[in-house]
Structure formats: structure tokens, C-alpha cells
Nucleic acid binder design. Structure first.
Length: 860
RNA sequence: GCCCGGGUGGCGGAAUUGGUAGACGCGCCGGACUCAAAAUCCGGUGGCAGCGAUGUCGUAAGGGUUCGAGUCCCUUCCCGGGUACCA
């Protein structure tokens, strides 16, 4: 047995690590700490896909590296195990979600262990474990206590197919994010969390986070802060007033009409009898529109006049009041002042219904558009005339405040978080309804556990499945002895993942969600790696809960995740697609948009590059070349199990890191896996030679200067690249080392030892195996990380390119000690034969020498 | 539409503060070993011209700054992600 055979060694080391608890997190606080977190996986029935190992390998490399660098490392994993799939399976088959969940967790755990990740398996958490969700409920009660959780009867996103409501964030284009089912609006009693109370802090504290700028920007947009003013309009001839929110108080002179959302509470009283029928009809249509329909009808502006007029406070003009669904009930005050001259939507509406338009900002002379939203001097605006937008805003707000008809105001797009779901497989709310009012279950009575039910579907009356557990629902309030009903909604899946990173710190702590002593040591999370699909939802919710816990004194940091990195998606293998129509193959450009096409998959030997397109070999017929997202329907899913079976976990880990920068989207290539597998084979042979499993000619002699240079170059590059998470180039440096070392007569064991340590975070199984065969009795997991020494990197001379007018014409060898002697270096350059050729008959106008870098002679 | 990212060989990708573009890997070509193949090893590999030294063109396109630009500035095009009547 001489060849590298991953299946022989990988299992062995996985068992070793588990049995020896090699990666158990220390309970001491004697060293600097590093908390490195992977995003909470949902243990689905289909198991791991290749996207999981990408982020997990990156964090694992860092975790292993940091341990060797002398840090206490917290690197845990657990299960975000509540959720819809297990429940839907239960509805279909009657299998309790608990059973399905436990089975899936088992599969996931095994798969993660098969990849050699260095998790502390004693800290595994599971959101569906009553000992865990006890604390989820505890946190909910904190929110309830602080008035941040309340019940509200409101129109919600009801998804009939899923039998539940969804948060706004879970509705994409009018369809459910999960499953893509239609969503309709329907009023229901719901639990809502007041995340809006934290809008400003959620926005402000983003600034100090070391997160991708795009993610921070997405959160900022989602929170959607806008600064403006509220203005009060009297209704002509009535004892009512309407408030509007505007970001452009400077344009008040241009307000020529008002628009209320169809749902605005004053619509009824403002509608005159002759407009009544039209208004009611319009309201009716608007209310029936689903979100999807609203989106489809965005082009045309619709609306109805109410018959009433408002008085513009700035010039006492009477302006008509309309209702239209382009004004949203839930934003601002649900009413706007329309300034068609400066707002594109208002302009469109004014054109449609023939309403007056007054410009209040002077557009530039060459402006040809309709509404003008740019800056310029105010016109037609009385006391504001001539001012720029910024100055006019200030002056108008001052005027409004003096007159008592308005004031500066700030609005957020962020809305409160709809927190209840009509499902079985979620955390029960620790709430009793006594005398029709919600009341917290006493902390001593937590957890409120899920009752058994005979059917996991909602009841016929549309109540959540928990309503079927009559004995559980009907209870008594232990405090008053009164009859009480338990809350039958459950929490959304986000609840458990909002604070799991805290539970890892002290998974068995009984005095609260987290042990304060260890919380202070481990928090914040130093590095959090996960997909960008969680940029808004999970990351915003978790930050919100964290801030609430901070206010409660449970945690000591304002923010949970100091540094965040998103791994890029892994696409399927590149596919070449040709199109056939009516039995004839046509060019891809021609095929675009056509129907009834037959798609033909071509292999890469059937195509060639022509210009910037691919064509079928020897023809002019263009084909599409594209890597698609992996999907079952496309049949291009790569299963990590298969890759491990064929090439081993180390090859999979190495390949996923070698593909390219972590953050980037990249296509899969099985050939690429073979490439890194070959590298591991070469590494194996470097140590064991062609035959036998004895370590080959490792010499005990001192390494020569060339060997030291090669080794220390690798140490430097690998160390720096791991620290900045450039794993692809770190692996390239390891490959260069092996390529060099393979040409040596013998390999000094001191050099081999350091190299194996460098390789170990990336390919831990093969590294441990070689390490042990080199005679070490202990795992290398806590060996000291090799240090590089600059003195071995220096060479006696440096090769410097010589340019003539910026083009390289020759290279010179300069002794390292003399690179700063400009005259010497330039003199040397001028002696070069190929340089003299150019200097002949020319005049040197400038001589540039950048020490150790370049020489450039500018000639005429 | 708006806001973020990106466009470098046949492919994935390298390239310090502006200083030899194409590291490393894949693929391809040639050679060694073999009855043969696989595996492995050695050599080559951006385009064009040339036997060659070498020359020339080349980092989406066009322009600019500079002794020198993949890198900085302006304009345009294309791809990916997010978002969408938020007043």
C-alpha cells in the first residue's frame, strides 16, 4: 500500500478527533480568543450540497490556523431545525416532525464529520430542543415585557398553499419565497415585533461593522431612512385636517393636489355624496388586488377624486383631494401632497387626470424631461425663490414650525416584524389569553412545550394546528385560577436563529440564555461566514434581538457579528448549448426569445472560440456557454458524498478553496478536483517515494539555502493569505513548494515538518497521516504555526527589467546590496546589447530607476 | 429605472503603494515508460510575423493623466446580485 488512498486515512482521523475530543473548546480564558461562526444550517432531507462545504471549509481553515497560532478558538455547529419541510412531510405521511428532524440531523452531522471539520461537537445546539427553545421563549418574554411584542389585527400576507402568513420579507414578487406560491392580503390577529423602535440604532451601528459594503447598503436601504417634514393641510369647509409626509418641503408651493391611500381612515368623511359610488368601487378593487397584481399594474396610474378640497397652508390655494393606490397606506401618513413639477409619479398622475403642474425648481436650459428632480434655484415659491433645495428645505421647515402647521420629521421604510405563523413545527408562544388579554407565562413554567396533535394541518376553521390540542389550549392561569387559552400560533423559523450564536458559548447554562462570564470573553463573533441571501432577513433580525438583549444586560456588545464574509455561490459545470428549430440548428443569437426550441448539450470538444463567442466546431453557428445554478430539474447538482467517495474529503476541501476567491460566484469543474487530487498524490509521493509506505529519504542534514528559501517563501505566502482569506493563492503557494521539493535529491525532515503544518488546515487528514508516520504520537492540531524569517528570503542578486520608453528590452542582474545605487544600475542597463541597439543614435531625456523594480530610459 | 459588484489566454483564476500581464490549476501539443492503454514523469503552450535572436499586438470598447496603466480619471457597452410607486 503505497499510494495515497483517502478512504483509508480519512475515516481513521475523523474517529481519532472525535474520540480524543481534539477540538473541544477550552474552558479557560488564558489566551486571546477567536470566535468563528458558520451560518446555522437547516438540516434538510436532501443533505449537504457543495455550497455548504465552501463556507465551512473556509472557517475551518481559519479555526485550525488560529489554534496553531495560540488562540482559544470557539468553532461550533448546530441545527436550525424548526421549519416547513418536516411539517409538510408530517401532513403528508403523519410522521412526527421530530422523527424526521432527528433523522436529518443525523445525516447532516455525519456528512459534516466526513469532511473533517474541527467543530466542538460538545456544543451542538438544536432549536427544536425544549432546553434550547425555553430560552427562545424567555427572550420573547423580554420583548413582551418591554412592549416590543404586541398583538395586532392587520392585513397580512396569507399564503393559502402554505396555510400560513408570511413576513413582508418572505414575500418576493407577490409570491412566497419558499415554494413560490401566491400570497393574498387578509386581516388576521397576529403577533408583531416592534423592530421599528430600533430602526435608528440598526442603521447607525452598521457603520462600525467590518461587513461587505453591499450588505450594509442593503440593510440601509431596507431600513430606508428619509428625512423630511410633516405638513398639515386643512380640509376646505370641514373640521378635519390631513397630515402628509414629504422629503421635499421646499416644493410646497407646487402642491397642486393631494392623494390619500385608498385605505386612509378619512376617505369616508371626505368623500362627497356624488363621488361616493366611484370611491367605494375604487377602494373595493384596490383591496382585492393581491401584491402580485399591484406590481403588474404599476405602469398606469389610477385614482378617483373624493369631491373634497384641502387648503395649501403656504398659499391658501384650494387643491383637490384624490385617492389612488400609488400612495401606500403603511408608509408615512398614508397621504401625500402631490408636486407633479418635481416628482415623476405625481407628474404621471397629473397628466392622466389633467391636473395642474407648477414647477418650483428651475431646470437647466437644456432640460427636456417632465418632472425635474435635480437641484436648482426655487421658482414660483414666494419667500423661497432663488434658494437651492437644501436651503429652501431649511427655510420652509422653519416657516412651518413658526406657523404651527408642520415640523421636521423622519420616516423609515422598515415595518414592524410579523412574528407569528400558523404552523405546528415552531416554538410555541409562552402566552396565555386571560379575559381576552395576552399574559406572559411565568418564567418558572418555561419551556412551554409543543403538545402532541392528531393531525398537523390547520383546523377546518383556519386555526393553526396547535388548536387541535384542546387539552393543551384550554388551561387555567396559575396566578388567578381563571380560565385561560394558550396562544396557538408559533414563532417563525427566524426566532431560533436570532440568538443561537450566544447559546454555543454556554450550551448547558441554566441561569439564562448565555453565561455572562463567558459571554464577555467570547463575544463578539470575530468572523461570521455565510451566504449573501441572509443579508437582510436573518442578519437584521439577529442584530435587533441582540440590541434588545444588550438593553436587558444579557450581552455586553452592541453588535453580534463584528466581521462578516459571504461565500459566493458554486454553479454547475459550464454547459455549451446549441439550439435546434424545426430540425435545423440555429445560432444562439437567433434563438433568443424564440419558442419551440430543442436544446442540445455539446461537449467542450465540439465547440471552439470565435471572436468573443463560442461556435460549433468548424461552423459559424454560435452556441451559448454558461454555468447555471445547480438545480435538480437541470440535473447539474454535484453531490459532496460522491466527490468524497471518488477523491476524498481533503480534495473536496482543497478544490473548493482553490476555485477562486471565496466571495466570488464560480462554476464547478470536476477536472479541477482531479487537479488538486493530483497535487495531494504528489505530496504523498514527496514523503513516501514511489514504493512502500516508509517515509522516503528524509534527511537529518540541515537544509541548504535554496531549500530554506523555498520553504520560507511558502510560509510567508500561506500565512499572509490565510489571514486575509485568500485561500486560492495560499494553495497555489503550497503547490509551488511541492513542485520545487520534488526536484530535490533529498528532503530535510525539518523542511518537511513545516510544510506539513502549512498544509494541515487545508487538508487535515493527509497532513495528520503524514505527521504521524513521521513519528509524532500526537495530533498536529496544536503544533506551533511555522514562522518565516526574512533572512532566508533574500537573494544575492535581483533581476531588474530595463525598459526603453516603457517597453521591456532587457533584464539585468543587480547584486542585492547595490540596487539603490542609481548610477551603477543605469550604467549596467546601458551596457546591455539590446539596450544599446536602441540608444544608438538617440538622446536620453530621462533616466528612471526604481530600486529593485525597474529601470526605464526615455529616449528621443 | 435606481443602488451595489464584475468584465484579464481555450477555461477557473494570479499580478504589492501605478513598475517584466497571464503565478497556480485545468485543457491542449510533443516526448519518456508500456505489447498497448491508464497512471506517472519531462518539455512546450496569449495572438500574429520569423529558423532564430527578436519584433509587434494584447487585460470589454473609446479617450485621458503618466517615463510607465489590468491598476488612476472620463464616456460607452455587456454580465451578475439587490431593489422597485417608500412621497
Amino acid at each position: 500500500m503505497s499510494t495515497y488512498n483517502p478512504s483509508d486515512i480519512e475515516k481513521k482521523w475523523q474517529i481519532y478527533w472525535l474520540e480524543n475530543k481534539t477540538f473541544k473548546t477550552p474552558d479557560t480564558k488564558d489566551k486571546p480568543k477567536y470566535y468563528i461562526l458558520d451560518m446555522f444550517p437547516y438540516p434538510s432531507g436532501s443533505g449537504l450540497h457543495v455550497g455548504h462545504p465552501e463556507g465551512y471549509t473556509a472557517t475551518d481553515i481559519l479555526a485550525r490556523f488560529k489554534r496553531m497560532k495560540g488562540f482559544n478558538v470557539l468553532h461550533p455547529i448546530g441545527w436550525d431545525a424548526f421549519g416547513l419541510p418536516a411539517e409538510q412531510y408530517a401532513v403528508k405521511t403523519g410522521t412526527h416532525p421530530r422523527t424526521t428532524t432527528e433523522k436529518n440531523i443525523g445525516i447532516f452531522r455525519e456528512q459534516l464529520q466526513m469532511l473533517g471539520f474541527s467543530y466542538d461537537w460538545d456544543r451542538e445546539v438544536d432549536t427544536t430542543d425544549p432546553d434550547y427553545y425555553k430560552w427562545t421563549q424567555w427572550i420573547f418574554l423580554k420583548l413582551f415585557e418591554k412592549g416590543l411584542a404586541y398583538e395586532s389585527e392587520q392585513p397580512v400576507n396569507w399564503c393559502p398553499e402554505l396555510g400560513t402568513v408570511l413576513a413582508n420579507e418572505e414575500v418576493i414578487d407577490g409570491k412566497s419565497e419558499v415554494g413560490g406560491f401566491p400570497v393574498v392580503r387578509r386581516p388576521m390577529r397576529q403577533w408583531v415585533l416592534k423592530i421599528t423602535a430600533y430602526a435608528e440604532r440598526l442603521l447607525e451601528d452598521l457603520d462600525d461593522l467590518d461587513w461587505p459594503e453591499s450588505t450594509k447598503e442593503m440593510q440601509r436601504n431596507w431600513i430606508g431612512k428619509s428625512i423630511g417634514a410633516e405638513v398639515e393641510f386643512q380640509v376646505a369647509g370641514q373640521d378635519h385636517s390631513l397630515r402628509v409626509f414629504t422629503t421635499r418641503p421646499d416644493t410646497l408651493f407646487g402642491a397642486t393636489y393631494m392623494v390619500l391611500a385608498p385605505e386612509h381612515p378619512l376617505v369616508e368623511v371626505l368623500t362627497t355624496s356624488d363621488q361616493k359610488d366611484q370611491v367605494t368601487a375604487y377602494q373595493d378593487t384596490a383591496s382585492k388586488k393581491s401584491d402580485l397584481e399591484r406590481q403588474e399594474l404599476t405602469k398606469e396610474k389610477t385614482g378617483v377624486f373624493t369631491g373634497s378640497y384641502a387648503i395649501n397652508p403656504v398659499n391658501n390655494a384650494e387643491i383637490p383631494i384624490w385617492i389612488a393606490d400609488y400612495v401606500l397606506a403603511h408608509y408615512g401618513t398614508g397621504a401625500i401632497m402631490a408636486v407633479p413639477g418635481e416628482d415623476e409619479r405625481d407628474w404621471e398622475f397629473a397628466e392622466t387626470f389633467d391636473l395642474p403642474i407648477i414647477r418650483t425648481v428651475q431646470p437647466p436650459g437644456d432640460f427636456e424631461g417632465k418632472a425635474y428632480t435635480g437641484d436648482g434655484p426655487a421658482i414660483n415659491s414666494g419667500f423661497l425663490n432663488g434658494l437651492t433645495i437644501t436651503d429652501a428645505k431649511v427655510k420652509m421647515i422653519q416657516w412651518l414650525e413658526e406657523q404651527g402647521v408642520g415640523e421636521k420629521s423622519i420616516n423609515y421604510k422598515l415595518r414592524d416584524w410579523l412574528f407569528s405563523r400558523q404552523r405546528y413545527w415552531g416554538e410555541p408562544f409562552p402566552i396565555l389569553h386571560v379575559d381576552g388579554k395576552p399574559k406572559a407565562v411565568s418564567l418558572n413554567d418555561l419551556p412551554v412545550t409543543l403538545p402532541p396533535v392528531d393531525d398537523f394541518q390547520p383546523t377546518k376553521t383556519g386555526e393553526p394546528p396547535l388548536a387541535r390540542a384542546k387539552n393543551w389550549v384550554e388551561t387555567t392561569d396559575p396566578e388567578t385560577g381563571k380560565k385561560a387559552l394558550r396562544e396557538t400560533n408559533t414563532m417563525p423559523q427566524w426566532a431560533g436563529s436570532c440568538w443561537y450564536y450566544l447559546r454555543y458559548i454556554s450550551p448547558d447554562f441554566n441561569g439564562g440564555p448565555v453565561d455572562p462570564e463567558f459571554e464577555k470573553y467570547w463575544m463578539p463573533v470575530d468572523l461570521y461566514v455565510g451566504g449573501s441571501e441572509h443579508s437582510v432577513l436573518h442578519l437584521l433580525y439577529a442584530r435587533f434581538w441582540h440590541k434588545v438583549l444588550y438593553d436587558c444586560g444579557v450581552v455586553s456588545t452592541k453588535e453580534p457579528f463584528q466581521r462578516l464574509v459571504h461565500q459566493g455561490m458554486i454553479l454547475g459545470e459550464v454547459e455549451y448549448t446549441a439550439y435546434e428549430k424545426d430540425g435545423k440548428i440555429i445560432s444562439a443569437d437567433e434563438a433568443a426569445g424564440q419558442k419551440e426550441l430543442v436544446r442540445l448539450q455539446l461537449s467542450d470538444s465540439e465547440v471552439e472560440k470565435k471572436g468573443d463567442r463560442f461556435v460549433m466546431k468548424g461552423t459559424e453557428i454560435t452556441v451559448d456557454s454558461k454555468a447555471h445554478k445547480m438545480s435538480k430539474s437541470r440535473g447539474n447538482v454535484i453531490n459532496p458524498d460522491d466527490v468524497v467517495k471518488s477523491y476524498g474529503a481533503d480534495s473536496l476541501r482543497l478544490y473548493e478553496m482553490f476555485m477562486g476567491p471565496l466571495e466570488q460566484v464560480k462554476p464547478w469543474s470536476t477536472k479541477g478536483v482531479e487537479g488538486v487530487n493530483r497535487f495531494l498524490n504528489r505530496t504523498w509521493r514527496l514523503l513516501f517515494g514511489e514504493h512502500g509506505d516508509e517515509i522516503r529519504n528524509l534527511s537529518e542534514s540541515d537544509p541548504d539555502s535554496e531549500q530554506l528559501k523555498v520553504l520560507h517563501t511558502a510560509i510567508k505566502k500561506v500565512t499572509e493569505d490565510i489571514e486575509s482569506m485568500r485561500f486560492n493563492t495560499a494553495i497555489s503557494a503550497l503547490m509551488i513548494f511541492v513542485n520545487e521539493a520534488n526536484s530535490w535529491e533529498e528532503l530535510p525532515s525539518a523542511v518537511a515538518k513545516d510544510f506539513i503544518l502549512l498544509l494541515s488546515p487545508f487538508a487535515p487528514h493527509i497532513a495528520e497521516e503524514i505527521w504521524s508516520r513521521m513519528g509524532h504520537a500526537q495530533s498536529l492540531a496544536y503544533e506551533e504555526w511555522p514562522q518565516y524569517d526574512e533572512k532566508y528570503l533574500r537573494s544575492d542578486s535581483v533581476e531588474i527589467p530595463v525598459q526603453i520608453n516603457g517597453k521591456v528590452r532587457a533584464n539585468i542582474e543587480v547584486p542585492s546590496g547595490r540596487i539603490h545605487e542609481k548610477d551603477f544600475v543605469i550604467g549596467l542597463a546601458k551596457q546591455q546589447k539590446n539596450v544599446q541597439k536602441y540608444l544608438d543614435g538617440s538622446v536620453i531625456v530621462k533616466e528612471i530607476s526604481v530600486p529593485g523594480r525597474i529601470v526605464n530610459l526615455v529616449i528621443k
